[in-house]
């Protein structure tokens, strides 16, 4: 078994990185110009948001544009302290929920995915269809009976209704994602391990998991982002402001009938964007480093 892993590992190291082509400089300039233009279009709203967070609240809609008259950092300090707890409190709450969900999804979804991708068992197709079916009902009709159920458990106003379902692989998106990745892995690896006498738990833990690092990284990044941004279920289950998470807190600045603290809202939106952007920056390195599965076939 160990030598198999080593082989895989060595193979990946031995594979030369994809050849960096050195194109004609004119072509390269054109390509980068195009990409930078596209980047600007993509990023314009984000840049506008950052700019707006740096100008006095009343000015945001009276004189919109990208260049603020004066740099105003007070939105950040005001927004940070505007709600019943400092904004950092909501960041921590969100972080707890996100961490729980990531662990849950990584463990439970990869296990379920292995079963669907590599094992032959009775009713597999039906179970798979049921799994996909569970993400086809919109949350708005599920939420009331689910709330009733969780309030029976005494879970309302805790993070449990948000985390426990993830521990139990209810997020079919990731199960399906991992199934697709595992099915893309060469089966010869499993068989080699089986010949070495490994059972399914060992094949899963020592062969498949290391090879599906890109899928695990993807799952981590998406779980992070989606949980961080998820509004509806966090709104419904967290009633005490002490328990509020970032998306719920962010909307507390908004009131369409009286004035909204736009400055604070944009400032805290920028603040809450930072953790997921950092998570993405870190996470994407795993996507690049993903183990190249060559040299086996």
């Amino acid at each position: 078994m160990t030598d198999l892993r080593e082989r895989t590992h060595k193979a990946s190291v031995a594979v030369p990185q994809k050849e960096v082509r050195i194109p004609g400089s004119a072509r390269s300039v054109a390509k980068h110009t195009g990409l930078i233009l596209l980047t600007l279009v993509m990023l314009y709203p984000v840049i506008w948001m950052v700019a707006s967070s740096l100008r006095p609240g009343e000015e945001i809609f009276r004189s919109p544009g990208l260049i603020p008259g004066s740099l105003e950092f007070s939105n950040y300090s005001e927004g940070w302290n505007a709600l019943s707890s400092p904004f950092g409190h909501y960041l921590i709450n969100s972080a707890i929920v996100v961490l729980g969900c990531i662990i849950g999804n990584l463990v439970s979804c990869s296990m379920a995915a292995y079963a669907f991708a590599r094992l032959e068992f009775t009713g597999k197709k039906i179970w798979f269809a049921i799994m996909l079916g569970t993400i086809m009902l919109p949350i708005h009709v599920i939420i009331v009976p689910q709330y009733v159920m969780f309030s029976q458990f005494g879970w309302v106003n805790t993070f449990l209704p948000l985390i426990v379902p993830k521990l139990l692989a209810t997020d079919a998106f990731f199960v399906f994602l991992m199934v697709q990745f595992i099915r893309g892995l060469p089966k010869e690896l499993d068989e080699a391990a089986r010949i070495d006498g490994a059972g399914h738990p060992r094949i899963f833990a020592q062969v498949i998991l290391p090879l599906m690092l890109p899928a695990l990284a993807t799952t981590t990044i998406f779980t992070f982002i989606w949980t961080w941004n998820d509004f509806f279920s966090q709104l419904i289950y967290l009633t005490d402001p002490e328990m509020y998470t970032v998306p719920v807190a962010l909307r507390s600045y908004v009131d369409a009938t009286v004035s909204t603290s736009w400055g604070s809202m944009f400032a805290m939106s920028v603040v809450s964007l930072l953790p997921i952007f950092l998570a993405f920056l870190v996470g994407q390195r795993f996507l690049i480093k993903g183990i190249a599965t060559t040299g086996i076939k």
Partner: peptide, 8 residues
């Protein structure tokens, strides 16, 4: 842009 999600 995808990170902004459903932000207000």
């Amino acid at each position: 842009p995808s990170l902004l999600g459903s932000s207000v």
